[in-house]
């Protein structure tokens, strides 16, 4: 589904990612871990194709198409979706209107059901993200993903800022987006999730973990084991271990 080969990325003239290679197969969900500022979000932004992220070397291919230099909206139309960590607020643009324009093919009943599922009824008539709390932004982002219906979803710290009551809702909804309710063999959707706490792993059956430090992968492996190690010994251990599979 997603193949990244030796990807080098510059932001503001400075190289942030130094040769990232990864392969996410259909139905797989990968987890990205690493200290703050290590380049995890940069990788997601680059995969989505935002302006400020310049690929200087390497390539990204998605379902067989080279998307390395493809405009953002074309990637979205190929089935890529991203849940923003800090989306901009857009005065005057109602969340409901956003849902309408994201995917006009979705039936109103589907959209209404999704809104209800995410407890966002009161937000439909509000300007998108304006004055939303951290948890409300997450719910709004997940809701938009449900309507957009991408086959590959990138999630940047989906659990941050979400209260305990809502983390369950978030976890379950993300699991559904990634078709975790289906047998592995039937799953088509893939995901790439950044997490610091690992709470989200309680809801997601994930397949692989990657640790990024200073713009490079230092470790690949079982995400739960990696997380346990980081929790016990910190990222220093990852640096010294540097187990590249």
């Amino acid at each position: 589904m997603l193949k990244i080969d030796n990807l080098h990325v510059e932001v503001g003239g400075k190289e942030i990612l130094h040769g990232i290679t990864m392969h996410i197969k259909p139905g797989e969900t990968h987890v990205l871990m690493g200290p703050n500022g290590s380049g995890k979000s940069t990788l997601l932004m680059t995969i989505m194709g935002f302006d400020a992220y310049h690929v200087t070397r390497g390539s990204i291919s998605f379902n067989g198409s080279d998307v390395t230099h493809m405009p953002v909206h074309e990637r979205a139309r190929l089935g890529m979706g991203i849940m923003f960590q800090r989306p901009p607020s857009i005065p005057g643009l109602k969340l409901g209107k956003m849902l309408d324009v994201i995917n006009p093919e979705k039936k109103p009943e589907f959209v209404t059901a999704a809104v209800t599922r995410m407890n966002m009824e009161e937000f439909v008539e509000r300007d998108i993200n304006l004055g939303f709390s951290g948890g409300e932004i997450k719910r709004s982002e997940i809701l938009q993903m449900m309507v957009q219906d991408p086959s590959f979803i990138m999630l940047d710290e989906p659990e941050s800022g979400v209260d305990l009551e809502n983390i369950h809702l978030m976890g379950e909804s993300i699991a559904r987006l990634l078709q975790k309710n289906q047998r592995f063999i039937d799953r088509k959707n893939s995901g790439l999730v950044i997490t610091h706490t690992g709470y989200i792993l309680d809801y997601l059956d994930v397949d692989k973990g990657h640790v990024m430090i200073n713009g490079e992968f230092k470790c690949h492996g079982n995400p739960r084991e990696i997380l346990k190690l980081i929790k016990e010994k910190g990222y220093k251990e990852c640096l010294s271990c540097a187990k590249i599979l």
Partner: peptide, 25 residues
């Protein structure tokens, strides 16, 4: 703001018009 809408599949022109529409609203 434009890229936010583009990430949802709107081309640049439509994204811009949608934002302007909101601005005037």
């Amino acid at each position: 703001e434009i890229e936010y809408l583009m990430a949802r599949g709107l081309d640049e022109e439509t994204a811009t018009a949608t934002i302007i529409r909101g601005f005037l609203d």
